[in-house]
Design a protein around this nucleic acid. Structure first.
Length: 375
DNA sequence: AATACCGGCGAGT
DNA sequence: TCATACTCGCCGGTATT
C-alpha cells in the first residue's frame, strides 16, 4: 500500500450547449426559441449536420450529428426556430476568454476541448471538497457575470469522477462526488453511461452479460483483457470503479487535420484544387503553433461513409505547405491507383481531408537539429 | 525482441 | 429520410533495426 494518499480535488467545467449559447449571448432575442447551429456542407441548400443546439431544440427532439434536413422537419411547425451556420472564430474567442478565467482559479489547468476544462484544486485541508466547492461556485458565478453564460461544474477526486459529476446534471448543474462515494454513484448506471464507453463497447459488454457499472466493476480481469486487450480491458474495469490516476496537465497538440465535403462524389485523383488550400491552412496552423510534422496523412470518406486513411512518415520534419501538398498528393495518387486495380473498381469519395501528425515543437535553441539534417 | 509505422476503429465534443 | 469537422487513443498486423 502506498503511504496515505490524500484524495485530489478535481473540478470539471463544461460550458452548456456551447456554440448555441454563444449565439444566444450574441443575440439574446433568440434565447426563447429553438437554436440550431449547423455545419452546412454546401452540397445542396440544406445538406449538412447539426453541430449543437440549445435545450429548447433538444426537448423537441433535435440532436447533434443529426442531418439538418431532419432537424428542420422536426421543427417545421415551429415558426420561431433559428438555424445558424457555425461561426468557429467567434466561439473560439469566447472560449479563450473563459478558459483564461477558469485557469486563473487553480494551479493545474487542462483544457479538454473548446468548451471543457479541468482544474486541480487539491489543498491540504480539503478532504471534504469544501474549498473545491467554493472555487466551483466562484467559477460559475464569474462566467455568468463576465460572459452571461451558464456552465456545468462537477467535482470529484479525479478527472473521471469530475466528468461523471458534470454528466449527471446538465445544464447549469453543480455536482460533487465525495471521496468514497464513487461506487455508489456509478453502480446503478448502465455501462454505456460511463465516460469512454460508447455504443460499440456497450454492445460487446452486454453480450458478455455485463450491463451495469456494478457488473463491470467486479468483472473478471482475465475475461476483460481477452475481449478488449491488455490496455483497454483493465481501463474499462477502472472506469466502473471510478479509478483514474491521469493528472491534470496541458497536453501539447499532437495532430491537426482539415477535411471537407466534396460538392459531389468523385473517383479520380484530380484533387489538387481542394488539396492546395488545405495544405496551406495546415502549414499556417503549424507555423502559428510553432510545430513541425513528421507524418502527413490523407482521409477519405466514401459514398458509403466508410473511412479510409493513408499516411506517410518522413524526415526531416516539415512545416511547409508545399511539402504537405506534395506528400498528400502522392498518397491520393497511389490510393486511387490501388483502388482502380481492385476487383470492385474505383471507389467513390464523399469527403477528403489531410492530417499532419507526429508533431514536434520547433527547436527554440540557436543550433537546430533540423538544420543539421539538411547539411 | 523491441520499436516504428500503418490502417482501421471507437469515443468524444 | 440524411449522415460535419475536428481531436485523441487503442488495436493488430507488418516492417525495420
Amino acid at each position: 500500500m502506498i503511504a496515505s494518499e490524500r484524495p485530489r480535488a478535481i473540478i470539471a467545467v463544461d460550458l452548456d450547449y456551447f456554440y448555441a449559447q454563444c449565439e444566444e449571448v450574441r443575440n439574446p432575442s433568440i434565447k426563447s426559441k429553438p437554436v440550431v447551429v449547423c455545419v452546412y456542407s454546401g452540397r445542396t441548400q440544406e445538406s449538412g449536420a447539426v453541430s449543437t443546439c440549445n435545450y429548447i431544440a433538444r426537448d423537441l427532439g433535435v440532436r447533434s450529428g443529426m442531418p439538418i434536413a431532419l432537424a428542420k422537419r422536426i421543427l417545421r411547425d415551429n415558426l420561431t426556430a433559428v438555424f445558424l451556420p457555425m461561426d468557429m472564430e467567434y466561439y473560439q474567442t469566447v472560449s479563450e476568454r473563459i478558459m483564461g478565467l477558469i485557469s486563473s482559479k487553480g494551479e493545474k489547468f487542462e483544457q479538454a476541448s473548446i468548451d471543457e476544462a479541468y482544474l486541480d484544486v487539491t489543498t491540504k485541508q480539503d478532504a471534504n471538497f469544501r474549498i473545491a466547492e467554493e472555487i466551483g461556485k466562484a467559477i460559475k458565478a464569474e462566467i455568468l457575470s463576465e460572459e452571461k453564460m451558464t456552465c456545468t461544474v462537477g467535482v470529484g477526486q479525479n478527472k473521471l469522477m469530475a466528468k461523471m459529476a458534470v454528466d449527471s446534471k446538465k445544464p447549469d448543474g453543480f455536482t460533487i462526488i465525495l471521496p468514497g462515494l464513487e461506487r455508489s454513484f456509478l453502480n446503478r448506471l448502465p455501462v454505456g453511461k460511463l465516460f469512454g464507453i460508447g455504443p460499440k463497447t456497450e454492445e460487446k459488454l452486454k453480450a458478455m452479460g455485463i450491463v451495469t457499472a456494478r457488473d463491470l466493476a467486479s468483472a473478471d480481469r482475465e475475461t476483460l483483457s481477452d475481449h478488449f486487450g491488455k490496455k483497454l480491458g483493465p481501463t474499462l474495469r477502472d472506469i466502473a470503479n471510478g479509478v483514474d490516476e491521469s493528472p491534470v496537465v496541458e497536453k501539447p497538440i499532437e495532430q491537426l487535420s482539415r477535411i471537407i465535403t466534396l460538392k459531389s462524389d468523385a473517383n479520380s485523383f484530380d484533387f489538387h484544387d481542394v488539396l492546395t488550400p488545405m495544405s496551406e491552412y495546415l502549414s499556417k496552423k503549424l507555423f502559428s503553433s510553432k510545430m513541425m510534422c513528421k507524418t502527413v496523412g490523407i482521409i477519405l470518406i466514401t459514398s458509403e461513409l466508410k473511412i479510409k486513411t493513408r499516411s506517410k512518415s518522413f524526415s526531416p520534419t516539415t512545416q511547409s505547405g508545399d511539402q504537405i501538398l506534395k506528400v498528400a498528393s502522392e498518397l491520393f495518387y497511389s490510393f486511387f491507383e490501388e483502388q482502380s486495380k481492385s476487383p470492385q473498381g474505383p471507389i467513390s469519395v464523399r469527403r477528403v481531408g489531410i492530417k499532419v501528425s507526429d508533431l514536434v515543437a520547433t527547436s527554440t535553441s540557436k543550433k537546430t537539429e533540423t538544420l543539421e539534417d539538411y547539411i
